[in-house]
């Protein structure tokens, strides 16, 4: 049974003139448990918007996103929040760690909204990403690569069914990026989570068996597609 199923997913944004521009129009997309897929595409092609729609951070204007048998687009915001916390891990390009919290607390914070704080697991995850000696360091006391690994550990904190990674190595050098992707892939496999990764880095994409051009999924051509505002 697919862990992620998308049907006719639509997202529009208003133009200054009041007309709406379609950013995302994905007729169909699905991922099986343990599947690891990499997406690439031009900047501004709607990849981040797509991941935000999948995670429920953005609400779609049409279609459906079903995760772990729950249709995210059909439920209230608070339920989407709960589903996101429970079933989705998200690694952002800029990591989005909370500066006032230590590495351990960043991981625990994610647990608070999901399955509850499990300090042992949080430590294990950080040890697994090589940060055993940096549990109590704040993000500002960590290197970029270390911050990225905290973000990976945090994404896996609630045993998610699906991990979304948006240019997770954008701030890293080539070798560090390659190591980081290997780590993410391994951890997702170990945790039984599917991985949907967005990157424009060919060396990263080369590590994946399943690599897709986002423009083949997304029927919208955001920079061209302009249509009248819905009434």
């Amino acid at each position: 049974m697919p862990v992620l199923e998308i049907a006719n997913l639509i997202k529009r944004y208003p133009n200054p003139d009041g007309a709406f521009r379609t950013i995302v129009d994905v007729p169909a997309f699905a991922m099986e448990p343990d599947q690891q897929t990499a997406l690439f595409g031009r900047s501004g092609s709607g990849k981040t918007t797509f991941l935000h729609l999948v995670s429920g951070i953005l609400r779609s204007d049409g279609g459906s996103v079903t995760i772990d048998n729950e249709t995210m687009s059909a439920v209230a915001e608070s339920r989407r929040d709960r589903l996101r916390a429970r079933a989705i891990g998200y690694v952002f390009q800029t990591f989005n760690l909370l500066y006032g919290h230590s590495a351990l607390e960043n991981v625990e914070l994610a647990m608070r909204f999901g399955r509850g704080v499990d300090r042992t697991l949080a430590r294990e995850l950080l040890e697994r990403v090589g940060l055993a000696a940096h549990l109590h360091h704040r993000p500002s006391q960590l290197s970029v690569g270390q911050q990225q690994r905290v973000a990976v550990a945090r994404a896996l904190a609630n045993h998610p069914k699906l991990v979304l990674a948006d240019e997770p190595t954008g701030s890293l050098d080539e070798q560090s990026a390659s190591d980081a992707i290997a780590l993410i892939r391994t951890l997702c496999r170990e945790n039984g989570a599917a991985l949907l990764l967005v990157s424009h880095d060919r060396s990263i994409l080369a590590q994946f068996d399943d690599v897709r051009d986002f423009s083949t999924l997304n029927q919208a051509a955001p920079e061209l597609s302009v249509e009248a505002a819905p009434s």
């Binding site: 608070s78 709960r82 996101r84 916390a85 989005n96 909204f113 945090r154």
Partner: peptide, 16 residues
């Protein structure tokens, strides 16, 4: 705002 957005992205409800 960024902090609130991160909390929400991690699954915090608006009410929280």
């Amino acid at each position: 705002r960024r902090e609130f957005a991160i909390l929400r992205a991690l699954g915090a409800r608006r009410q929280t």
